[in-house]
């Protein structure tokens, strides 16, 4: 049974049961506006880094919320904190703080030690 489970978790599905959502919880607690995102993509559209690399703040938001944390930290480092995303966001999400908090959460969490 265990073996079988191992194979399933290797699949494409987001395993919501076992994924680690502690990073998301860490951010929710400190920056409640994280919950307000409606995935409109305004932030990623205006983002300078996003126009040159795969970095997408919107995508990172949803990955963290689903607990798909692999490679998120690598991506987060590319943010320049310029703040255009804050000016664009229709939901008033404090995007820069989320980037900073996410980095902090990853650094504090032993599971993602780099």
């Amino acid at each position: 049974m265990e073996k079988f489970g191992f194979f399933i978790s290797k699949g494409r599905q987001i395993n919501y049961d076992s994924n680690d959502r502690s990073i998301a919880e860490y951010i929710y607690e400190r920056e409640p506006s994280f919950r307000r995102c409606i995935e409109c993509g305004g932030c990623s559209a205006t983002c300078t880094t996003g126009s040159m690399t795969k970095f997408s703040l919107r995508e990172l938001h949803i990955l963290i919320k689903r607990g798909e944390n692999d490679k998120v930290m690598e991506s987060l480092k590319k943010c320049m904190l310029c703040g255009k995303c804050i000016l664009v966001c229709p939901r008033g999400v404090n995007t820069r703080n989320i980037v900073v908090l996410a980095k902090q959460a990853f650094q504090k969490s032993a599971a993602y030690a780099i």
């Binding site: 300078t48 126009s51 320049m80 904190l81 310029c82 703040g83 820069r96 900073v100």
Partner: peptide
Amino acid sequence: DGGACCGRPLMLA
């Protein structure tokens, strides 16, 4: 066409 940030926001952080 949009350039790199000046760096001050990072410094402020």
